[in-house]
């Protein structure tokens, strides 16, 4: 990102400690991860030690320090989802995407993550892709669900950059 853009983000949120998280969120939204150079730049600009940004970025799971795919697939492994067979859903997702949790597919389309309870236990097992909640997921349904997102990409509906 150009530095002017970063400066804009900083001035829009205010150059103070309160705005660290909003600033990081905007960078995350733009890049899908928090690049090192950007963190270094805002650390200097906002006069916040780099280690503090790094601690925050590594603490919250909504931030990522490695590039994330276009779609974030979150499989709930919380207690309620677990007893309803979430591990089978996870296994199937791993197989279909051919990645392990916290990895990204080679084509940069999907990142797989596991979460521990999304607060929607009645819908379990639940898979959240981007902002869509797919309740009552079964292993058999995983492929169809993932396909919805794949097809969008094939339409050339590219939003990055």
């Amino acid at each position: 990102m150009e530095q002017t853009k970063l400066d804009e983000i900083i001035s829009a949120n205010g150059n103070n400690r309160k705005s660290i998280i909003p600033v990081l969120q905007e960078i995350q939204a733009t890049y899908n991860y928090l690049p090192k150079e950007e963190l270094q730049y805002i650390s200097e600009k906002m006069d916040i030690p780099l280690i503090e940004l790094f601690s925050i970025a590594s603490f919250y799971s909504s931030f990522s320090l490695t590039p994330r795919g276009k779609h974030l697939v979150q499989v709930c492994l919380g207690t309620a989802c677990h007893v309803r067979g979430a591990h089978r859903v996870l296994d199937e997702s791993k197989k279909r995407l051919q990645i392990e949790p916290d990895e990204t597919t080679d084509d940069q389309q999907f990142t797989l993550k596991t979460v521990n309870c999304l607060g929607a236990c009645a819908l379990g097992p639940i898979v959240v892709i981007d902002n869509d909640y797919h309740g009552n997921t079964r292993a058999q349904k995983v492929n169809a669900i993932l396909a919805q997102y794949k097809s969008v990409n094939n339409n050339g509906n590219d939003t990055t950059e």
Binding site: L50, I51, E52, L53, F54, S55, S58, F59, L65
Partner: peptide, 25 residues
């Protein structure tokens, strides 16, 4: 200096420098 700090959380919380490389400060 603030060269090192806690990174990660839960049982993965540990002390390191930013990006695990020598810190500028």
């Amino acid at each position: 200096a603030k060269a090192i700090g806690f990174v990660g959380r839960g049982d993965k919380r540990h002390i390191t420098t930013p990006f695990d490389i020598k810190s500028d400060v």
